[in-house]
Amino acid sequence: MSKKFSIMILFVCVVMTLLSVPVLAEDEVFQVAMVMPSKINDYSFSQSMYEALKVLQSEVGEENFEIVYSEDMFNVADAREAIRDYADMGFDLVIAHGSQYGTSIQEIAPDYPETAFAWGNGTDFFGLDNVSVYQARAEQGGYVFGQIAAAVSENGKLGVCGPVESGDAKTYIDGFKNGAAEAGAEVSVTYTSSFSDVSLMSAAAETHMDEGAMVLTGTSQSIPGAVSVVKERDGVWLGVQWDTIPLAPENVLVSLVYDWTPILNEIITKMTEGIYGGAAYDLTFENGGLQILWNTENLEIDQELIDMADDLAQKIVDGEIEPLPAG
């Protein structure tokens, strides 16, 4: 017993000693930290931002642009600590990629004037000159996709597998419903009330298809469940937030991709000029943040359809179409 005990104590001592070896200091590079409630590969909101950062990184080289992230920060208290800690560690730009992080940014940002913060989908920058806020105008894409879906549907029945009735999922769906209704299609929506319930998502898609809707859309990291059903039963899927084409190359007609690079570029360019925030950005068709990515590689798509979508997007840009119904 005593022998075992002393071995254990020795081990503890060794571990403790090793733990106190200092880490090496960091080099001078542009450092970005991203805090998100889901994961970098969620096929939706978080992935769109992470991939945009990757694009920027590949432009300037990995040695000049460092990206770190905290996933699964659905607990706001944890996220808050992560945001503060990144700022403390001297990151140049801290991205709080979740609408629930607003209060945290509001409280932390004033303590770190040398750090730029970005908050999305956020509502305002609280008058702070080191906070930028960005938001996806999902309803614009929703409207166009509603029209596209109505055009490709043979029986005028569309299904939406929304996970939740909140955030930009909700605004997308509202836009989609409006667009579809104006094109004379009938939309039914299911909510599974969970971002992660893949199984129920697939059951929801199956139910839509049982009731005759062959053209489906939806958001969140649980959509692979729905896409797999669409693939199996040979329906049509319209992806949102990130490119869903790899999930079902034969069935995903089009994806609405959030491309944050223009906005990120602007934020970073301004930072080099010494402006750390105080601005709000909208991801829209106009600034190229909302992109319609057609699956032309695997499917033959009618050019008329593509033109129609471009035309609608242009009309939204020109203000001729209101994506959301009045009131």
């Binding site: 994961k39 969970s194 992660s196 319930d197 893949v198 199984s199 129920l200 697939s202 990291q221 649980s222 692979p224 469940g225 797999s228 059903v229 199996e232 999930l247």
Partner: peptide, 18 residues
Amino acid sequence: TFSIANINMFQEKMTNGT
């Protein structure tokens, strides 16, 4: 059954409380 007999893909936490 989740990953090869129903949804035929794998996603983290896909059993979701089952």
